[in-house]
C-alpha cells in the first residue's frame, strides 16, 4: 500500500465496511466516500456542529476526527435515524416546528438532540440551550429548535408509554 494510506474496517450504519483512506483524511471525507452527505464540513474547527456523527455512540465533530480513528468503531450518521421509511421522533419534531430554514445545520442538530434526549428525557430550556451551544444555525431558528426538542421529548415519552 502507498505510503500515507491505510485500510480501515468499521461498522457504518449497522453494516461492516472496509475502505482505504489517506492518513490525513478526516471522518467527514470517509462518509462522503460512502455517498453519505448528511455530515457537512462547514466551519472546519469543531465549532458549528454541521459535521456531527456518532462514534461508538458518542457525538464527535467529524472535521476534527482522523479517519484512521474510525478503524474498529461503530459509526452512525444522520442517514441511519430513518427506520423502514419512518423518520425518528426528533426528525419529525424538527419538521413540525419548522426548526430550520436552509437546513444545512439540521443533521448536526438532530444528532445532538438524539444524544441529549438519550441522556435526559425531559431537559429544561436551560439544559437544551447549554447542550446545543456548540451548534450554530445561521438562519437563527433557535426558538423553533428549542420547541422541536421539547416536542421530540414528548413524542418519545408518548411512544415509550404506548
Amino acid at each position: 500500500m502507498a505510503a500515507g494510506r491505510k485500510t480501515i474496517r468499521f461498522t457504518l450504519n449497522g453494516k461492516p465496511v472496509e475502505t482505504e483512506i489517506a492518513n490525513h483524511h478526516n471522518a467527514v471525507e470517509v462518509l462522503e466516500a460512502f455517498g453519505l452527505f448528511g455530515a457537512r464540513e462547514s466551519c472546519a474547527q469543531g465549532l458549528c456542529g454541521c459535521c456531527t456523527l456518532l462514534v461508538d455512540g458518542k457525538a464527535v465533530s467529524g472535521c476534527l476526527y482522523l479517519a484512521a480513528f474510525l478503524d474498529g468503531a461503530v459509526v452512525t450518521s444522520v442517514e441511519h435515524l430513518e427506520r423502514d421509511g419512518a423518520l425518528s421522533p426528533v426528525q419529525e419534531a424538527f419538521i413540525e416546528e419548522g426548526a430550520f430554514q436552509c437546513g444545512f445545520c439540521t443533521p448536526g442538530f438532530v444528532l445532538m438532540v438524539e444524544q441529549l434526549l438519550d441522556r435526559c428525557a425531559a431537559p429544561s430550556e436551560d439544559e437544551i440551550r447549554h447542550y446545543l451551544s456548540g451548534n450554530l444555525c445561521r438562519c437563527a431558528t433557535y426558538p423553533q429548535i428549542i420547541q422541536a426538542v421539547q416536542r421530540a421529548a414528548e413524542k418519545r415519552k408518548a411512544s415509550a408509554a404506548a
Binding site: L47, K58, S61, M112, G134, N135
Partner: peptide, 9 residues
C-alpha cells in the same frame, strides 16, 4: 469547556 463533541474526544 468548548462543546459536548470536543469534550467527548
Amino acid at each position: 469547556l468548548s462543546n459536548v463533541r470536543v469534550r467527548n474526544v
